[in-house]
Amino acid sequence: MDFTIVAYAIPFLLTGAKTTLVISVFGVGLGLPFGILLALARTSRNRLVCKAADAYCAVFRGTPMLVQIFVIYYGLGQVGFVRANPVIWWLIGDGLHAAILAVLLNTGAYTAEIFRTALLSLPRGLIEAAQACGMSPWIISRRIKFPLALRQALPSYSSEVAIIIKESSLASTIAVLEITGWAKRLMSETFAIMDIFIITSAFYLTLNVVGLTALKLLERQLWFERRSTRRKATSLCPS
C-alpha cells in the first residue's frame, strides 16, 4: 500500500464522512419516529389507514432505493407545482435534502416492518392486564406496548442502521459527495483502486462499528432496567 495515496485520500474521505454522517443521522433521527408511526398505522383498526400504510411499505420495500432517489430528485423536480411551492422545493431541489428525504422514506418502510412484527409479538396477557387495570388505550401504548416493542425491535433495528449507512452512498448518484462519491473520484484520479477501496471500507466499517456499538449500549441499558425491575418485583413479594 502506498502511504502517500493514503495521506492524500484521507482528508477528502473525511469530508465525505461528514456528509454520510449527516444523511445517516437524519435518516435514523427522523426515520425512526416515522417508521414507528407507520407501524402504528399498519396495526391500527382503521382499515383505510392500515391499507394505505401497507401499500406504502410494500412499494418502498419492493423497489430499489436508486429508483426512489431518482424519482424524488429528477422526477418530482420536473413537476411545476413542486417547483412553485417553496417548502417542497427546498426539500427536493437540493441534492443533499433530496438524499435525506429518500433515505428517510425508504428506511421508514423497513423500520415499520420491524416495529410491526415487534408490536404483533407482544404477549396478549400483558395488554389484557393493562386493560383490566383500567388504563386508557393511549396509556397502554405509551407505557406497556411501546417500551416492550422497542426492546423487542432494537436488535433488528441495529442492522437497519447499518443499512442506512450503506444506503446513504446512493446520494453520490445525485452529485452529493459523500464517502462513496469521493472514493469514486479518488479512484479515477489516482488509479490506486485497491488502496482507495481498502481505506474507504475502513471508513464504512468504522461508522458501522460506532453505530452498532451505540445501539448495543442502548440495548443493554434497556435490559438492565428490566432486570432491576424484576429484582424489585421479587423483593416486594418474597413469597
Binding site: K166, S169, T180, F197, Y204
Partner: peptide, 19 residues
C-alpha cells in the same frame, strides 16, 4: 463477508469496474 456486507454495493461495483 464482513467487508462486502459492511460497505455499500456501489463501492464494490466501483472496485470491480475500475479495478
Amino acid at each position: 463477508s464482513i467487508v462486502v456486507r459492511g460497505v455499500p454495493g456501489l463501492l464494490v461495483i466501483y472496485l470491480l469496474f475500475f479495478g
